[in-house]
């Protein structure tokens, strides 16, 4: 008699609906195919991590979700990228509105050269909120959500550039939160930060995931393991096109990956 023990539920870290997805998605830079036939669902109110070796198309993949790749000439996209079931590459999509719904945090903190307050108020102002009281509320709420309020509440008028790297990154997160997005994309958000600032951002991500859908690209496998609910492993094929090798619950992928290539990568047997 063999009894299979499933003591912990590694299968279903997230019960939510699919918030974003790609369907048979390929992306080309001119003649070069950067992504090949990627189909993947991003669950809502959860953290999805994308890992893989350099050059496998992780960042390109992330930038699909708010059409940041549009800014690069010669980019061609095949297949669908959906937000709540709507193809965001349809012609009638308002890209400004899309980027409000799908915010982005970059590798290096990039606060605007203005005050802490103005950094956070910038987005809401652009989207038409002018009332000072209302803006003050949004700024306070966003900074609180980004776990930065207590550190900056007495220096809202000071330049954001005077903050530490970790604080600047949290400010950038607050700036994204201020426009009330649905999805937050993070491209290596901690790679320029020290370990303590990194752990603070990770902790913040965890609390944000209660209300937001987060997709993070990271080189740091341990970070993906610590922070995410779902993990996707990308790698390059012979012609250097990025493919999705394996996608599943993080607890499963890092303890018992299905694909030998995932196993070899995360145990450091190829690099």
């Amino acid at each position: 008699m063999n009894i299979n023990l499933e003591l912990t539920d590694k299968k279903a870290p997230v019960s939510g609906e699919v918030r974003m997805s790609t369907k048979n998605l390929s992306l080309y830079y001119g003649d070069f195919q950067a992504l090949r036939d990627i189909t993947l669902n991003i669950p809502e109110n959860a953290i999805t991590a994308v890992i893989g070796p350099s050059g496998c198309g992780k960042s390109t993949f992330l930038r699909l979700f708010n059409r940041m790749n549009d800014l690069i000439t010669g980019v061609k996209v095949d297949g669908r990228v959906e937000l709540d079931g709507i193809n965001i590459y349809d012609r009638d999509i308002d890209v400004v509105e899309l980027r409000k719904k799908v915010g982005m945090v970059f590798q290096k903190p990039n606060p605007f050269p203005m005050s802490v307050f103005e950094n956070v108020a910038f987005g809401p102002r652009r989207h038409g909120r002018k009332n000072r009281m209302e803006l003050e509320d949004v700024v306070e709420k966003s900074l609180k959500q980004a776990a930065l309020w207590d550190e900056v509440k007495d220096k809202l008028g000071q330049s954001a550039l005077a903050l530490s790297g970790g604080q600047q990154q949290r400010l950038c997160i607050a700036r994204v939160l201020a426009v009330e997005p649905e999805v937050i994309l993070m491209d290596e958000p901690c790679s320029a930060l020290d370990p303590i600032a990194t752990l603070r951002i990770e902790d913040l991500m965890k609390s944000l995931a209660e209300n937001y859908t987060i997709v993070i690209v990271t080189h740091n496998m341990q970070q993906a393991a610590r922070v995410s609910d779902m993990s996707a492993f990308f790698m390059m094929e012979e012609d250097r096109a990025g493919i999705l090798v394996e996608y599943g619950p993080t607890a499963e992928l890092f303890t018992n990956p299905k694909d030998k290539r995932t196993e070899d990568y995360i145990t450091g047997r190829f690099g």
Partner: peptide
């Protein structure tokens, strides 16, 4: 070393 997958197991 933060072992993963089969190394961790």
């Amino acid at each position: 070393q933060q072992p993963m997958a089969s190394d961790l197991r």
